[in-house]
Amino acid sequence: TFVALYDYESRTETDLSFKKGERLQIVNNTEGDWWLAHSLTTGQTGYIPSNYVAP
Protein backbone atom coordinates (compact mmCIF):
# COMPACT_ATOMS: atom_id res chain seq x y z
CA THR A 1 0.00 0.00 0.00
CA PHE A 2 0.98 3.62 -0.54
CA VAL A 3 0.26 6.69 1.59
CA ALA A 4 -0.90 10.03 0.16
CA LEU A 5 1.65 12.81 0.74
CA TYR A 6 -0.79 15.59 -0.21
CA ASP A 7 -4.50 16.19 -0.76
CA TYR A 8 -5.65 15.69 -4.36
CA GLU A 9 -8.97 16.84 -5.82
CA SER A 10 -10.02 14.91 -8.95
CA ARG A 11 -10.16 16.89 -12.18
CA THR A 12 -11.95 14.28 -14.31
CA GLU A 13 -14.47 11.55 -13.54
CA THR A 14 -11.75 8.87 -13.86
CA ASP A 15 -9.47 10.52 -11.25
CA LEU A 16 -9.58 9.57 -7.58
CA SER A 17 -9.74 12.31 -4.94
CA PHE A 18 -7.86 11.63 -1.71
CA LYS A 19 -6.60 13.32 1.43
CA LYS A 20 -3.08 13.49 2.86
CA GLY A 21 -2.41 10.36 4.93
CA GLU A 22 -4.97 8.22 3.09
CA ARG A 23 -3.86 4.65 2.33
CA LEU A 24 -4.07 3.58 -1.31
CA GLN A 25 -3.65 0.17 -2.94
CA ILE A 26 -2.07 0.48 -6.39
CA VAL A 27 -4.02 -1.55 -8.97
CA ASN A 28 -1.95 -0.70 -12.07
CA ASN A 29 1.19 1.45 -12.29
CA THR A 30 2.07 0.85 -15.94
CA GLU A 31 0.37 4.07 -17.14
CA GLY A 32 3.40 6.32 -16.55
CA ASP A 33 2.79 9.19 -14.13
CA TRP A 34 -0.87 8.29 -13.49
CA TRP A 35 -1.58 5.10 -11.55
CA LEU A 36 -4.87 3.27 -11.08
CA ALA A 37 -5.42 3.06 -7.33
CA HIS A 38 -8.04 1.87 -4.85
CA SER A 39 -8.60 3.91 -1.69
CA LEU A 40 -8.65 1.77 1.45
CA THR A 41 -10.47 4.66 3.16
CA THR A 42 -13.33 5.38 0.74
CA GLY A 43 -13.43 2.14 -1.27
CA GLN A 44 -13.32 4.11 -4.53
CA THR A 45 -11.01 3.43 -7.47
CA GLY A 46 -9.52 5.88 -9.96
CA TYR A 47 -6.36 7.39 -11.37
CA ILE A 48 -3.93 9.26 -9.11
CA PRO A 49 -0.76 11.28 -9.81
CA SER A 50 2.11 8.98 -8.81
CA ASN A 51 4.18 11.85 -7.37
CA TYR A 52 1.49 12.45 -4.69
CA VAL A 53 2.07 9.08 -2.97
CA ALA A 54 4.91 7.14 -1.33
CA PRO A 55 5.30 3.55 -0.06
Rank of each mutant, 00 (worst) to 15 (best):
26 I>V: 11
35 W>D: 00
51 N>D: 12
29 N>G: 13
49 P>Q: 06
36 L>Q: 05
28 N>V: 11
9 E>K: 09
27 V>S: 07
29 N>Y: 14
53 V>A: 06
2 F>W: 15
27 V>T: 08
23 R>A: 13
4 A>G: 05
18 F>G: 00
22 E>M: 02
21 G>L: 02
35 W>R: 02
52 Y>T: 06
15 D>A: 10
10 S>F: 03
38 H>Q: 14
50 S>C: 08
16 L>K: 01
40 L>E: 08
53 V>L: 08
47 Y>N: 05
9 E>N: 10
40 L>Q: 07
42 T>Y: 03
26 I>K: 06
5 L>G: 02
24 L>M: 08
31 E>M: 15
1 T>D: 10
42 T>L: 03
7 D>L: 02
28 N>R: 08
38 H>W: 10
12 T>I: 10
9 E>M: 11
25 Q>A: 09
42 T>N: 05
2 F>I: 05
23 R>Y: 15
51 N>T: 12
45 T>C: 09
26 I>E: 01
8 Y>R: 06
48 I>V: 11
3 V>E: 07
20 K>E: 08
35 W>M: 06
41 T>S: 13
19 K>H: 09
20 K>P: 02
13 E>A: 13
29 N>D: 13
41 T>L: 14
2 F>N: 01
29 N>S: 13
54 A>M: 13
41 T>D: 15
36 L>I: 09
34 W>L: 09
7 D>C: 05
26 I>H: 02
39 S>C: 03
40 L>N: 06
34 W>N: 06
11 R>C: 10
19 K>I: 08
43 G>T: 03
4 A>P: 01
3 V>C: 05
33 D>H: 13
47 Y>W: 15
48 I>H: 00
40 L>D: 06
23 R>I: 15
51 N>C: 09
39 S>T: 02
5 L>S: 03
4 A>R: 00
25 Q>E: 15
34 W>M: 14
33 D>S: 12
20 K>A: 13
17 S>G: 09
18 F>W: 01
50 S>D: 02
1 T>P: 07
27 V>W: 14
55 P>G: 07
47 Y>T: 05
11 R>A: 13
46 G>R: 00
43 G>M: 07
51 N>Q: 13
12 T>K: 14
51 N>F: 12
41 T>Y: 10
53 V>P: 02
12 T>D: 11
48 I>C: 02
20 K>C: 07
15 D>M: 10
7 D>A: 06
6 Y>E: 07
28 N>Q: 10
36 L>V: 07
35 W>G: 01
8 Y>G: 01
20 K>F: 05
55 P>Y: 10
